[in-house]
Design a protein around this nucleic acid. Structure first.
Lengths: 335, 335
DNA sequence: GAATTCTGCTAAAACGTTTGACCATTACCG
DNA sequence: CGGTAATGGTCAAACGTTTTAGCAGAATTC
């Protein structure tokens, strides 16, 4: 790799010291306008580009943050809610760039063996995420999108959390079903259960007991349509078919819809369906699905903003922000 | 940000020099097994994490590469082919990690004002990409996924390119239409025309002239369904409706399919449709769409591999790899 | 028993930048 | 005209590593 012009080269060219060059280029320090201009001109002529590494070394900061999401590792296979994750990623990158940070794509479980980033965003953290453990230990901030299930030890830093209020969102769906006249409501979820699904299930059970309805939670082996077959079949078959189903994941709702059509159960005529994570799937089924829009763009923007605040002021305390979801009512629940 | 234990702290602890610590931890240099173990034990006890910045400064490499894709900036809006880009990104990150590199999400048009990465992958490069220009100038390798439209100046480094053979892919689709008995075939594309669409159009025109068929290229204002209305309408209306349409983008095909259904034109009964970029859209329409699978995972893996090769051996020459597409025949062309 | 090789380690330079302390000059004040 | 202030810079340390050259002593060779 060829040697790039450095601050010292400019210094030699213009006959000033390296310190002056450094200051001149960043419009700091005291010097004559003429010197400053000469330095800048020389820098431009030489095609000088500041060396971020050297800058980081003295500054102690890399201006880099990372984002870890489970979905990214499974990408070669089918990932549910691709659109959700992609939006999350895109919005995070954009916000980071605005704040003059770079965004590094990490995978969870990758327990960084070198210090390279100033902080991390972790999406849907698992309970034993080694990245989080390491970051806690070395005192680098981590903001999670979705609740942390661990929170271990006194060494853990302040809690930085961005999340949707899934309890409220679930209530909203169930109330909507109720208003539309559904009396028996089932919930369809899939392994593995993350904090989001756990919250939804809890809220569902709570809601059912308040409304004195018999809860019915059906679990699929995975969000993939092929693995959801049995669970979906069980819901859709005739005796005991619920009047409404809230599926926690869009692929589940899609599978359910297909199966319902196959056995001649009309949606929304015979059954309502709603799901979480608005995206292409929900919009393009027939009928289109009523969904909870989780506002991934806001989630990511908020997370990055909080993270960078925490980097700039390490002594600031915990921060916990809830991003409101929005119920998008579509034809699958009668418009 | 609290000061982390450094190599010097370990040196003091164990009573050896910093150089020895550095060598010990990386299993290099000559020293007694006992010393090596003592150093490692001390490092572990102190919770030492190597400082990547310092390492980069002396090594001249950051172990970081970036990936730029147009789609990432448009993410707050609707992005066509989300799945394609997400897979590209995920596969690139995974491959980079395997090779001990970090992947930075960049946006095109962001003309890096500091040197932070060792090389870049640019997806669907535009003709005036400032990132590419800068990288060329400072001698950092860039591999593009999709042909470069510029290639300016003698200073430009070797060409590093990964691409699908869209000519071949387009021929395959058209031959498939032909075999199925379609006589009039239209092509539907959308502004802005990138290298991929240009290749497809050229191939289409070529194919038509060889088969002595009248070509019919229809352009939409953008890939978004809302902007494609007029173009789609023009194709679908009765007199002169083609027997088959190849839409270069999946959202176009989807819009076309919907409009066809609306005017009572059955697919595949009255018209065949095929599209590019396999993804959820193509799989879930009814009927499902015949597509060209571009193999994004392979594209990204290859790109990252080539890039890192070029970083490790800057004097190696140009590299150009074609990744084979696969025609996935589905119901929209009669199975 | 002198020359050579091996072993185990260290010193110091280098990477490119930032920053705080300092130092000449020249200008200004009363 | 002596003292203070402003101007326009420079010096050197520091950031945490890697790497090359070298050195003292022990072991081996002939």
């Amino acid at each position: 790799m060829k040697r790039l012009p450095s601050i010292t080269d400019i210094a030699r060219e213009t006959g000033v010291s390296a310190a002056t060059v450094s200051l001149a280029l960043r419009d700091k320090g005291r010097m004559s306008e003429e010197t400053r201009e000469r330095v800048k001109a020389s820098a431009a002529a030489l095609g000088y580009v500041p060396n971020a590494t050297a800058r980081s070394l003295v500054g102690g900061r890399t201006q880099l943050i990372s984002i870890a999401m489970p979905a990214i590792r499974q990408v070669p296979e089918v990932v549910s809610s691709v659109e959700y994750f992609f939006r999350l990623l895109g919005a995070a990158a954009a916000r980071a760039l605005e704040l003059d940070y770079g965004l590094l794509v990490a995978s969870p479980s990758e327990s960084l063996d070198r210090v390279a980033v100033d902080g991390a965003v972790v999406v849907d953290p698992s309970h034993d995420d080694p990245t989080i453990a390491t970051f806690d230990r070395i005192g680098r901030p981590v903001v999670t999108i979705g609740r942390r299930l661990d929170r271990i030890g006194p060494e853990a830093g302040p809690e930085l959390l961005v999340d949707n209020d899934y309890t409220r969102a679930t209530f909203e769906v169930l109330d909507h079903f109720n208003e539309k006249g559904a009396r028996s409501i089932a919930l369809l979820a899939a392994e593995p259960i993350d904090s989001f699904q756990q919250d939804s299930i809890d809220a569902y059970l709570d809601w059912c007991s308040r409304h004195e309805l018999e809860p019915r939670v059906v679990m699929a082996d995975s969000p993939e349509p092929s693995d959801a077959g049995v669970a979906v079949e069980g819901i859709v078959t005739r005796p005991g078919r619920p009047e409404a189903v809230y599926a926690t994941i869009d692929t589940l709702a899609e599978a359910l819809l297909e199966r319902a059509a196959a056995v001649g159960a009309g949606v929304p005529r015979d059954m309502f369906i709603a799901t979480c994570s608005d995206g292409h799937i929900a919009r393009s089924t027939s009928p289109p699905l009523t969904t909870i829009d989780e506002k991934p763009v806001e989630l990511a923007q908020t997370a990055v903003t909080i993270l960078i605040d925490a980097i700039l002021d390490p002594d600031a305390g915990s921060q916990s922000v809830q991003v409101d979801t929005e119920l998008l009512v579509r034809a699958s629940t009668g418009g």
